[in-house]
Each structure stands twice: as structure tokens, then as C-alpha cells.
Design a protein around this nucleic acid. Structure first.
Length: 292
DNA sequence: CACCATGTTCCTTG
DNA sequence: CCAAGGAACATGGT
């Protein structure tokens, strides 16, 4: 369940639950997911360590740990990949099929589960340091964004997935932000003028903020086995009432645009699906079109 | 069997 | 150096 808002909501959920807890035992079931850290290395470093702080950087979770021995401060880095989940379970509960690692905390167990094993749990922070600015921080300015885009001929949608440009956008919110900014995903990044870049900059921040707000409002079941769990990620506030769609274009090909009614299109860019309204998100600045 | 999937990295080709 | 395309990683759901 990745992308910045999901990670942010998870971090806020986990932080108070882990705060101050000591890891009594470390169990690693999928060593590959730790790379380049070895299971032995992880066990040795984390056994006896205490959770001090949990934060987020892009799509990464950063666990600041107080070491058990007189060693340098520890940062444990987590990434959920496509299907990663982290949650607490009672020690008696059976471990899920695709468990990567388990931390024994005494009365509870902290579980990292990841069906596809694309995630990461490691002591290597090198990937984190390559990240661009946090989109919701003051570091991410429209001017900086404009200058970075000006240097790239890549399609803007593809560029938005570049974590060194801005950290945390993924395939869903990239499409959503472009729709909100009424910019075609196929435009070369450098073709965007200041005005559009500013609109996109704002749209990115709005889309992410709204998603975090939505996820924070809804009771989420992190450990639940539910297939289509009530993750705000998938669009609806709750499966109960409220038709309020959070996602306006993603996954909606052939459905009507909520603004103009035109059919939402799907295309493939960099081997990933992009969703957009061909009418609201035109390639050229252009003027009104009948369908809109 | 086919196709799709929230992510990232690596490789080849031009 | 850049960009694009494909494959890889691995496991599911529809």
C-alpha cells in the first residue's frame, strides 16, 4: 500500500504504538528483502534496541532506534514496495504467509509482510539520500520545480515518478495531480511554462494533502486479511455510504470525466498505466473545445 | 491461458 | 550523457 499518503498515514498510526518499545528478538524469513544488509547484521544491530522515533521520507519509513550497546545511532529503513504492510499482532497470532521479518516486542509482535517482496527493510540509507525534496515541505518550491522540469524532455507523467525530482509521488497520484492541474501527461516536462508548473506544484500538494486527510479520518485495518480492505488508497472514503470518489482519473478508463463527461483514457508510459481526460488535459494551451 | 497490479533497478538499444 | 523500452524482482487477482 505505498505512495506518500499511505506511508504517512501508516507512520502516524505506528509511531505511538512503537514508541519506547524494545526489540527482544528478531526473526528474518526473507533475507533478500534486507539487502544489502545481512540477516545476521540486522539481528545483531536490532536485538535489544529501542524505538525512539518514526518518520517518513518520500515513500520510506525511517525508524530511529536507540542501540542496546555503545554503538552509533541506528536508522532502520523500510519501504513497502507494491504490497508491503506493517502492523502489530499478538504473539499468539499465526504469521501471515508472506512475512518478511518479525520483531518481538514482548506483549506484541511487529510484523512486516510483503506478498511480492518488492519492499525493503534495511540498515542501508543510501537510497534515502538520493531523494528529492519532500513535496509538502517548504523545500519544494514552485521555482525549484520549474527549473528541474525545464531541464527534462521526458513526458511530465514519467518525470513525476522520478523520486529525485520530488519524493513520494507514485503512479496513482501522478495521474491525479496532472488531472487536477489540467495538464496532459504526455507533454514534455520542459514544455511547461511557469504558470502550468505552478498549477501542477499546487495540485501535487493538494492531492497528497487530501489523501492524507482522507486516510487519517478513516479507521484502517492494517493487519486485516480483507482483500479489498478499506484503504483510502483505493478511492472511496469507506465502503459503507458516501459515493465520494477520491480518485478522479486513476483506474477509471472509459468512465466519464467528473468535470466534463468525456471518457477517461488510459495510455502506457514507461511501461505503466496513465489515466487522463483527453478533453480537460489537452496538449496545447488551446481554448475551449466543444466537448468540454 | 490472458492481462493487470500502489515500486524500483538494471540492461540494452538508439 | 540522454531517452525509451524491456526485463527483472515475485505473487497474486480477475
Amino acid at each position: 500500500m505505498p505512495e506518500l499518503p499511505e506511508v504517512e498515514v501508516l507512520v502516524r498510526h505506528l509511531a505511538p504504538l512503537l514508541q519506547g518499545k524494545t526489540i527482544r528478538r528478531v526473526l528474518v524469513l526473507r533475507p533478500r528483502v534486507l539487502r544489502p544488509t545481512s540477516p545476521r547484521q540486522l539481528v545483531r544491530t536490532l536485538r535489544g534496541a529501542r524505538f525512539v522515533r518514526l518518520s517518513r521520507r518520500g515513500k520510506f519509513l525511517l525508524f530511529t532506534m536507540e542501540p542496546s550497546r555503545r554503538t552509533p545511532a541506528i536508522i532502520l529503513v523500510g519501504h513497502l514496495g507494491m504490497s508491503g504492510r506493517m502492523y502489530l499482532l499478538p504473539p499468539t497470532a499465526p504469521l501471515p504467509k508472506h512475512t518478511v521479518a518479525v520483531f518481538d516486542l514482548g506483549k506484541q509482535r511487529f510484523v512486516f509482510e510483503d506478498t511480492r517482496y518488492f519492499g525493503r527493510l534495511t540498515l542501508d540509507a543510501s537510497q534515502v539520500q538520493k531523494l528529492g525534496p519532500e513535496p509538502l515541505s517548504a523545500d519544494f518550491t514552485a521555482e525549484l520545480f520549474f527549473r528541474a522540469l525545464k531541464r527534462s524532455s521526458q513526458a511530465i507523467k514519467v518525470k513525476l515518478l522520478d523520486q529525485s525530482l520530488v519524493a513520494g509521488l507514485g503512479n496513482i497520484y501522478a495521474s491525479e495531480a496532472l488531472f487536477r492541474a489540467r495538464i496532459s501527461p504526455k507533454l514534455p516536462a520542459q514544455a511547461l511554462g511557469r504558470k502550468r508548473v505552478h498549477r501542477l506544484w499546487l495540485a501535487i500538494r493538494e492531492v497528497l494533502t487530501a489523501a492524507i486527510e482522507c486516510g487519517s479520518t478513516v479507521p484502517l485495518n492494517y493487519a486485516g486479511r480483507a482483500k479489498r480492505d478499506g484503504f483510502f488508497y483505493f478511492g472511496r472514503r469507506l465502503e459503507t455510504d458516501s459515493y465520494e470518489e477520491r480518485l478522479q482519473v486513476y483506474g477509471r478508463s472509459d468512465e466519464p470525466c467528473l468535470v466534463c463527461g468525456a471518457k477517461i483514457q488510459r495510455c502506457v508510459q514507461a511501461a505503466r498505466s496513465t489515466f487522463y481526460c483527453p478533453c480537460c488535459q489537452r496538449t496545447k494551451a488551446g481554448r475551449l473545445q466543444r466537448a468540454c
